Simulated assay, not measured.
Amino acid sequence: MRRALLANKAFAGAVLMFAVLFLVYQSMHPRGFSSAVFVQNANETVAIAFVAMAQTLPVLMGGLDLSVGAVMTLANCIASEMVNGTPLEILLGCVVTLLAGTLFGLMNGLVVVLGRIQPIIATLATGAIAIGLALTIRPSPGGEVDGDLNWALTNTVFDLAETYGLAEDGNAAWLAPFADIPVPLILLLGIGLAVWLPIKRTVTGRTIYAIGSAEGAAFMSGLPIARAKIAAFTMAGFFAACGGLYLAIQTSSGNADVTQAGAYTLNSIAAVVLGGTSLMGGIGGVVGSMIGAGILRVFSFYFRILSIDPLLQPLIEGIVLLAAVSLGAIKTLRVKNTLELFR
Results as ranks from 00 to 15, higher is better:
M1R: 15
R2L: 12
A7E: 13
G13M: 14
V15D: 02
A19I: 06
F22L: 15
V24N: 04
S27F: 11
G32Y: 03
A36E: 14
V37M: 12
V39H: 09
N43A: 10
F50P: 07
V51D: 07
Q55Y: 06
L57I: 07
V68L: 05
A70L: 03
L74A: 01
A79D: 04
V83I: 14
L88R: 08
E89L: 15
G93L: 08
V111S: 01
V113H: 06
G115Y: 02
R116F: 05
A130V: 12
L135Y: 09
L135Q: 15
G143S: 04
E144Y: 13
V145G: 00
N150E: 09
W151R: 15
A152C: 07
A152I: 08
L153W: 11
V157I: 11
E162P: 02
T163I: 00
L166M: 13
A167G: 14
A173F: 10
P177T: 06
D180F: 11
V183P: 00
P184L: 03
R201D: 12
T204K: 00
Y209M: 08
S213D: 15
G216M: 14
F219K: 15
G222K: 12
I225W: 03
A226Y: 10
A228G: 08
I230G: 01
A232C: 03
T234E: 05
T234K: 09
A241N: 07
L245P: 03
I249L: 07
A261K: 06
A263Q: 14
T265R: 11
N267P: 08
V272K: 08
G275A: 06
T277S: 12
M280D: 10
G281L: 10
G282Q: 09
I283H: 12
S289E: 02
M290I: 15
G294M: 00
L296R: 13
Y302G: 01
S307A: 14
L311M: 14
Q313E: 15
G318A: 09
G318Y: 07
I319C: 12
L322R: 02
A323V: 15
A323L: 15
G328L: 03
A329H: 13
I330H: 02
V335Y: 08
N337G: 01
F342R: 10
